[in-house]
């Protein structure tokens, strides 16, 4: 069985994102970028399935500018067999990502696609669901446990509000990963060295025939309002007075 994993190059989780002065976007100039953490979990899951002898090949795909090759190399250093960059210097929104992934799926013919539940930059939480819909495949989102039952079906446990839901999915399927699915391994230096020699194909987004024109317009990016410091109240009466007249909640 072949597994395809999508990996997005996103602003690093340690970096404090800051809007540009003109409010047009988040300022990404010389900011550290790395693999979307949920995608690391997706990569880890694919590798574990391969190590368990369930998957025969693992392929990572990233969509974006040429720097995404670094993200693919990281995936390969973790253990993915090869990488595909769908190259685009233009903004690619979730629907376009899903369509581009679909075109890669049609070419690569994997039985399983694993993506992150969301990317930590835009937090859209859309790509996995849209991809499953476009392909007409089953989907197991927010997965916290994945088990293959032969080559026909798989069991996915997913985190929902009230607890854990267990799904039985028909293959082929799309899975989106949640935080507790696994803990990704460290990338070892010898493996980074070896990953430089693994194959990495580049496909121009423009040559896929997919319409990637943005459908959404960003109006403005702003900082969240500054949280005001707390005050100490003297007694219960003052508290009630403030709740009633200042906060207007009672």
């Amino acid at each position: 069985m072949k597994i395809l994993v999508a990996v997005k190059r996103a602003i690093d989780y340690n970096v404090k994102a800051r809007p540009k002065a003109d409010g047009s976007d988040v300022d990404l100039a010389n900011v550290k970028m790395s693999m979307n953490p949920f995608d690391e979990i997706a990569v880890e899951e694919a590798i574990r399935l391969q190590e368990a002898g369930v998957a025969s090949e693992t392929v990572a795909v990233s969509i974006g500018p040429k720097q995404c090759q670094e993200t693919l190399r990281t995936a390969m250093a973790m253990g993915i067999d090869r990488g595909i960059l769908v190259s685009s210097d233009d903004e690619v929104q979730p629907l376009a990502v899903a369509k581009l992934l679909k075109s890669v799926v049609e070419k690569e013919q994997p039985e399983l696609v694993i993506v992150g539940k969301q990317a930590i930059d835009d937090d859209s939480n859309q790509v996995g669901q849209m991809l499953a819909a476009l392909l007409g495949w089953s989907q197991g989102t927010f997965a916290c446990g994945v088990e293959l039952d032969g080559s026909e079906s798989l069991t996915v446990r997913r985190e929902i509000d009230g607890g854990i839901q267990t799904l039985d999915l028909k293959m082929p399927a799309v899975i989106t990963t949640d935080l507790r699915l696994n803990e990704p391994r460290y990338v070892k230096l010898p493996n980074i060295m070896k990953a430089k020699k693994k194959p990495l194909d580049v496909i121009e987004a423009g040559e896929t025939g997919v319409d990637i024109k943005p459908r959404l317009v960003t109006l403005k990016v702003t900082e969240p309002p500054v949280r005001e410091g707390g005050v100490k109240v003297e007694d219960v009466n003052e508290l009630i007075e403030k709740l009633r007249n200042e906060a207007k909640v009672i």
Partner: peptide, 8 residues
């Protein structure tokens, strides 16, 4: 720890 990797 569980994710231990030796240096190189």
């Amino acid at each position: 720890g569980p994710n231990f990797e030796r240096g190189m």
